[in-house]
Amino acid sequence: MLGRTAASLFWTSRYNERAENMARLLEVGYRIAMTPRLGQDAADDWRSTLVSAGCESRFFAKHDEINKRAVMLHMLFDPDNPSSVRSCIEAARNNARSVRTAITGEMWESINTTYIEFMEVRPQHMSDDRLPDFLSWIKQRSMLYRGALLGTLMRNEGYHFSQFGTFIERADNTARILDVKYWILLPDNEMIGGSLDRYQWSTILRSVSAHRSYRHAYRDAHIRPFNVAEFLILRKEMPRSLAYCYDWIEESAEALAQRYGEHPPSHEMATATAALLGKGTMREIFQEGLHEFLTDMITRNNALGTQLAADYHFA
């Protein structure tokens, strides 16, 4: 397989995943905006949304102040924002287009249709009442692509490079969401947690579509920050947790190593991080410092992406 093909498969999946995550962050942002303010400044919540999405500095390069509509337009439609849904869909499609020979017709048609239909949407017509449907459409289109990938792509190296793209992006997203609000998850908060905190905890869960599954995983009427952190970091049954992502990453790293008969540095990095998440406990993580732990995860995850590109000659 061409190195460039591997790179494009990686990035197609990565951008596809990012588009979905952006839509979910915006959904949560809108939910917050609909809830009574609880004495808080609305701009702070939108700022958290921008920070979680990694779009804060770009946003302020173009805007002086935060407001709902500006954030929405920036995260959905701004071509200058490389992480806007528009940019993600366009990048995913361009990458897919450059490797048409390595993906299936179903995968291509799903991403191409998403692109065509997205480009027909006029930002100025995106009113508040249409937004929820639009956001859920984005998520569904992204899931459709992933479904087409899982259901039709040969289990060869291309599949594994795609999986890397999805889960490196997802791990990054989950780690960021946690890190933006890490202080409200510190154990001290559990004692003093007021309604605002409870609300914030459930917001974190919603950001990763976990507010329902959390209830099933922890049979306790109250949302507890310790559990929220554990759920998103260590619980392997949670499909957006760091441990879950690294299970897949390790599997793909192993499959590539088997296929090529070599264990390059990225394999070692994937295995080490997976082991850390597999054996770790929340007590240790809190002792070490949640923020430090999350920062370390984000760094490791980025480094893995870079090493993968070097090991497999991404052009």
């Binding site: 397989m1 061409l2 190195g3 460039r4 591997a6 190296e157 490079f161 090529y260 070599e262 497999y312 000659h313 052009a315």
Partner: peptide, 17 residues
């Protein structure tokens, strides 16, 4: 073009391996 290179008078593709 960037996927191809010439070495010792022969043309090669840059692959993952």
């Amino acid at each position: 073009a960037r996927d191809l290179f010439v070495e010792a008078g022969k043309v090669f593709m840059r692959t993952t391996r």
